[in-house]
Amino acid sequence: MKGSIIKYERDNIDTDVILPGPYLKIHDYAELAKHAMEGLDKDFHKRVKPGDFIVAGKNFGCGSSREHAPIALSYSGVKAVLALSFARIFYRNAVDGAFLLPIEIDESAYHDISDGDSLEVDISKNEIKNLTKNKVYKMKPFPELIGKIIEAGGLFNYKP
């Protein structure tokens, strides 16, 4: 999985800025995607390209349980969020609906990766290659169950 980076050097990016409340009334996912990250970055929908990754700090996705947040990111083209840590409901929603991969990275990778860098993520090796900087980082492996749900393509496809 290859993509380029949109980086927000911020902790606690909450689901209200990822997808503001007024848009929770929208049912068309393509329409929802136009408002992704609007609370933080009004230009996000112009910048984001299919296959992009978001890099952010601690506690990404805190707050509301709205699944509209990972859906909006997913339908805007985001394939993975690489963050220092995730709030649990966001993490779960992202995986259950197979919307995007929530990948935990360490401080050194977080500081090293720059906006616009080109990255290749290999979850079978738990490895992230920075193609721009020619470096390799480790990602935190998914817990066993999460890995299986991701592999199955979401909660409804997962068969124990």
Binding site: S65, E67, G154
Partner: peptide, 22 residues
């Protein structure tokens, strides 16, 4: 499907906020 489901814990109920897939 609301994060503030934790409220019900005041009654000794184990209460989780969940997303729409759940």
């Amino acid at each position: 499907g609301d994060s503030h489901t934790s409220t019900h814990g005041a009654f000794g109920s184990l209460a989780f906020g969940i997303g729409t897939s759940d």
